[in-house]
Amino acid sequence: MSKVLYVITSLSVGGAQKALLNLVASPLSTEYKPFVLALRPVDGVQGQFAQAGIPVYELQLNHWKGMLAAPLRLWRLVRDIRPDIIHGWMHHGNLAAVLAWLFAGCRPLLLWGMHHTPEAATAERMQHALVLRLGQWLSRFPDRILYVSRRSQQRHRELGYASGRSLVVANGIAARTHLSADVREDLRAELGVADETPIIGSLTRFVPEKDIPNLVEAIRLFVQGGNKACFLLAGEGMGTDNTVLAELLESAGCQESVRLLGVRKDAGRLIAAMDVATLASRCEAFPLFLAEAMAAGVPCVATDVGDIAEFIGSTGLIVPRESPAQLAAAWAQWLALPATERQQRGQAAQSRIRDTYNLDAVIDTYRSIFQEKPLTTPSLQ
């Protein structure tokens, strides 16, 4: 059986991590045995990988001792596993995958996975600038660069990344198990949300790309307009311990309408309780949260970034980025629709994910890619 070493930045709770879990826990693992290497130990979805029987290793790059020991540990790991395929996952993971490929002592198939869209230099955190530049220089080494969205592929080309062997492979969504109405009722009781109050949810992160200040301003305008809803905000940095976020909500005067849940590992349960799934991002590639919401029959209202408009289609509402007034108006517009129409649109969203973005089709694509022969020299295109 061929062996695949996936190299990812961390196993925190995020869309890229869930996409990797979907892939390695799929039937593809019966043909290509997966091993996962995380560069940094972050509490997240390690338990789910363990439950799926996937070996997980960590390089401990969160402190200087780990950084000093990392090259030797990586060399030993690669020589021990002897992978036939090395698949980088996210920018930092892609760079480490090149080093693993060099340490392999042979020439396994080298793949990069791009799960981010660098829309503009001003939207990038400073520490990512060097990573992007190194990635541009090293992008001639992979046999394939796999992008989860067309917009991500376009932006990386504009930044000078090699394009001769790039391919768009959207995230695949596994069939969702129907969650009973009791799940929705239990979560509402847990959070103290009345049955008649609509829930608008966002599984996101407190980072510049997600534009949380824009989201908070939209909530303020929505509430100020006399609309009622409870906003569930979950994810990294979205907890009550984030003083910056707490100050934003207090200044906006809408803290009573918001529940800050922080990092949660029950995303399916949260989504099942939502009436609307939303993102206010200023840049995205293929946000798995929205696709998972659609797969559960929850309609989406989101900003027009990445490939969001393409995969949501007519099943939800799209607004310009950095336009809180239009985002607030879209929420109000959606909740004003008759319940039967909202239900029909939710069913249409389910069908769209099932027909266009199902995991089985993605697995077939990966199977074809894994069967390709590695290049003998880096591409100079």
Rank of each mutant, 00 (worst) to 15 (best):
V305E: 06
V305S: 05
G306R: 04
A309L: 02
F311K: 08
G313C: 01
G313Y: 00
L317T: 07
L317S: 11
V319R: 06
V319M: 02
P320G: 09
P324Q: 09
L327H: 11
A328N: 10
A328K: 04
A329S: 15
A330Q: 08
W331D: 15
W331S: 13
A332C: 06
A332S: 14
Q333S: 15
W334C: 12
W334I: 02
A336N: 08
A336F: 02
A336D: 09
L337K: 11
P338H: 09
P338D: 13
P338L: 08
P338C: 12
T340P: 03
T340V: 14
E341N: 00
E341G: 12
R342T: 14
Q343N: 11
Q344A: 14
Q344S: 13
G346M: 10
A348Q: 09
R352D: 12
R352I: 00
R354V: 02
T356Y: 01
N358L: 01
N358W: 02
D360M: 05
T365G: 00
T365K: 12
Y366A: 04
R367N: 10
S368Y: 00
I369D: 02
I369M: 11
I369N: 01
F370H: 12
F370A: 01
Q371L: 13
Q371R: 15
E372K: 06
E372M: 12
K373Y: 06
P374S: 06
P374D: 03
L375K: 09
T376E: 04
T376N: 06
T376C: 01
T377W: 00
P378K: 12
P378E: 03
